[in-house]
């Protein structure tokens, strides 16, 4: 019979040590791919980035040199269009959820936003294709922007809501008590108080869609040449990386790594900026 006066059974000790060891091992195994991916990106990418890569457009197969300048500009254009659609809608929806947030409608919107967040990007791509590309009969940066914009809305809406809910009610009351109309109070006082968090949400959404490839495949489509007309097929960095990666040419593989490095630097910069801003915020709250 087991007894309480004896020391802890060796079995319990072993299980405990095994448990701690296994969860530490899990952490190492999760972090290893990250190190491997970043290491490879740097190792392969830095060698291939040069002035030509940043300023030239792709060369035909067989010719060396060339770059992804058109894809970089194209990505900026598509992301810009996406933000123009997504940011105002997302912030507007977030304000509504937080400031007028009660009743079934709001719960439904909140829930739908979360579900929309989980809809595969390729499905959003199909929807953008049938809505924009089919009626227009041609691919365009505009269609790509619509797809990315749709994907940004739920993230921005939910972070905006969360950030606004953290603004203390006394601040709203103070503004309304001065006789300021509600729309000005909300925009100039509540939203401004939460602006840091709202910007964070926009950056997160931006980082999330910046690397999206699937919804652009049949909306922006890609382009080997310069194009700044939003109504034309447009190159994008992720598409270019994809088509170069699955090509059989070494020269293009190199370019794919270089493009990937530029893309990841962009995204990591956005995410780190968010992290720094938010962690400062919480430190201020604790103090």
């Amino acid at each position: 019979m087991p007894s309480l006066s004896k020391p802890l059974s060796p079995w319990r000790r072993i299980t405990n040590v095994a448990f701690i060891g296994l969860s530490a091992l899990a952490s190492v195994l999760v972090l290893a791919p990250l190190v491997a991916i970043f290491g490879y990106l740097l190792y392969k990418g830095i060698g291939s980035i040069n002035l030509a890569f940043l300023t030239k457009i792709p060369k035909p197969v067989g010719e060396s040199g060339g770059g992804m300048a058109n894809a970089i500009i194209g990505s900026v254009m598509i992301l810009g269009l996406g933000s123009i659609f997504g940011v105002p809608l997302g912030i507007g929806a977030g304000i509504y959820l937080a400031e007028f947030g009660h009743g079934k409608l709001v719960t439904l919107v909140r829930f739908t936003a979360d579900v929309l967040n989980g809809v595969p990007s390729i499905v959003v791509g199909i929807a953008a294709y049938t809505m924009v590309v089919l009626p227009q009969q041609h691919f365009s940066a505009f269609a790509g922007g619509v797809a990315l914009g749709i994907m940004m809305v739920p993230t921005i809406a939910r972070t905006t809501e969360e950030m606004l809910l953290m603004v203390p009610n006394t601040i709203r009351e103070a503004a309304l008590g001065l006789g300021i109309p509600q729309w000005r109070a909300t925009l100039q006082v509540t939203l401004r108080t939460a602006s840091k968090g709202v910007i964070t949400g926009c950056m997160l959404a931006f980082a999330r869609v910046a690397g999206e490839t699937a919804p652009l495949l049949f909306t922006a489509f890609g382009n080997q040449f310069w194009n700044v007309n939003p109504n034309q097929p447009t190159a994008a960095l992720p598409i270019q990386i994809f088509s170069y990666a699955i090509s059989p040419f070494d020269e293009w593989h190199k370019q794919a790594w270089a493009g990937a490095l530029i893309l990841i630097v962009l995204i990591v910069a956005a995410v780190s900026a968010v992290r720094i801003v938010t962690s400062r915020g919480t430190m201020a709250n604790n103090a």
């Binding site: 999760v30 491997a36 991916i37 490879y40 910046a210 690397g211 490839t213 994809f242 990841i264 995410v271």
Partner: peptide, 14 residues
């Protein structure tokens, strides 16, 4: 968090 931010196409490339 960074792992979540890496785009799908880069995972594919790697």
């Amino acid at each position: 968090e960074l792992l979540a931010a890496i785009p799908s196409v880069i995972y594919g490339l790697w």
